[in-house]
Nucleic acid binder design. Sequence first.
DNA 1: CTGTTAGCGCGTTCAA
DNA 2: TTGAACGCGCTAACAG
Lengths: 337, 337
Amino acid sequence: MENKKSRATIYEVAKEANVSLATVSRVINGKGNVNEETAKLVRDAITKLGYIPSDQARGLATSMSANIGIVLPSTNYVYINKILAGMLDVCKIYGYRPLLFTYENVEDAERAVDSVIASRVEGIVIFNSQLETADVKKFTNISLPVVVIGNDRLNERNALVNTDNGTPLKNFIEAEVKNGIKKIIFLRDPNKDWHMTNGYEDAILEVLKDNKQVVYETKEIKDSYIPIYEYYVEYFKTHKPNHELYVCTRDTLAHALVNAGVDLGLKVPDDYEVMGIMGTKDSRKCRPQISSIKAPLYDLGAYAMRMLTKMLTSTLAADKYIYVLPAEYIKRNTTKV
Amino acid sequence: MENKKSRATIYEVAKEANVSLATVSRVINGKGNVNEETAKLVRDAITKLGYIPSDQARGLATSMSANIGIVLPSTNYVYINKILAGMLDVCKIYGYRPLLFTYENVEDAERAVDSVIASRVEGIVIFNSQLETADVKKFTNISLPVVVIGNDRLNERNALVNTDNGTPLKNFIEAEVKNGIKKIIFLRDPNKDWHMTNGYEDAILEVLKDNKQVVYETKEIKDSYIPIYEYYVEYFKTHKPNHELYVCTRDTLAHALVNAGVDLGLKVPDDYEVMGIMGTKDSRKCRPQISSIKAPLYDLGAYAMRMLTKMLTSTLAADKYIYVLPAEYIKRNTTKV
DNA sequence: CTGTTAGCGCGTTCAA
DNA sequence: TTGAACGCGCTAACAG
């Protein structure tokens, strides 16, 4: 008593339509000429049996697939999801199927890499990550096209899409210095490679190297709203802010920082200034609204995926392998300049 | 001049190790006995060639795969990403590979369904969606296990995971009525099936059917922060709030509503009350903090995926096919009760 | 225009 | 313990 109805194969369609499987294959793929009448026979058989070709078998036969691997560290950040959304949309437009590979840490990353290779994807988009150059090499060694988002370090012979948060940040810091800022604190995740933060600190330091009066500090802190909020509520009770500027690697950090002060009756940006990076909706929801570097997150994902599809179909001109999207400083109400 | 290095096959490993491919297959899968010495030979060959078995071919041979389909409408909502994160984590733990299928609208949904079937996944998790019962039937017709999240409508013979937002909402409305609320406005997306909103309105109406003094209204509005914020900033200018209660299907809507009023100098909850549903971080970031029904979003995804894995390995007891997670009313500062 | 046949890379009998 | 042969579902020559 085998109750399990299983899916129809191309053979069954062929038998149903009284033709050979080659003919069925032809009408499915629209290749080669086939008599309209027999084509209709085949089509009828297909709908009758509810036949849907197996991409697995098709992939084996053609040594191709419509699979694209997306490699991400944990997806629980709003801005990563924006990037992901961009990738997914483009993926769908071009008819590719996105396989998601997530990992927790460096060791886990290697497992993810092997899993990607086993899955027989046509290409890969890696979001700025904890992957090592060696990991990425595993891909290129077998001629697997790779597009990296937001991490120059990995860009050996791979395509790269990045956003230039550094320039607007640098300009902003310059303006702050000119405006007489005395102290700048850079708030960041202990896990330095995570948030495309490469270049942030460089941008700040580049401005500050000509100006030794400005105190610069780095603060590593768990990058989650609640812990930061609670930390600064306590902190501000004993450390009265003194017009310093906080630069935060994510808007959520900025939001926590602003709320902590405001809840204690402090004034932003009068007592201290806060700058967010990424420019997600958080910056507009906060009161006062957060000044931030707005990165084109969705576009970052979309461009990366589009670049990959180009690499898969045509050959991309060499100078097109790197694409840096501009970011923009949006002045709102947590900064003075 | 073929420069393309392509991946090694099981044949090449076999040749390298001077054994047959059957032997290689055995050491890979740990099945059947194989001499430790020859096994080592094989393992060496594998590492030397960097061989990674093709899941595609393996899938064809075994009629199985490690692929699981996740069907979602757009990933551009925070709370959906929470659910997705839960699914992905469990997916990884059990060694399955998640394929993502997103779609825009009802027509697009059918394309997605066919794509899922073509991709030869072992099972499917569908988030409460615009799929029709007929779509889901396409899956069950070919004995494909399906778990549906948050939509009873689709639950014909499928596994279902849901969150009971209705009960705490009902209790809350009861308390509001007892407290003398005069008007309740239910804010929702025009696309009614989207946000697991099934049952919200029912919960409200069930309380109100015994109480004809309370005015009940429904307001359909684009569910995005900015439009709602702007709409209500204008609206409140000419329509002074009169202690009514707004129930919002997502926290973002609530956040917009609160900000609009507060920016105009209105007081929440004195001038009007706001209730959010979902309980994402928004509710704690807003000032005043938003009272909300906190749904176990991550768990929703995790449970659904776990349920699917159970269905794939063992047979699940019939009464375990439905799992309803409790939601909780968290009183914060935008409501009076 | 249509059918036959040989793989794609791997797992799995069945013999040896 | 090992190897040869077949099949998974499909595509792509090659004949007819």
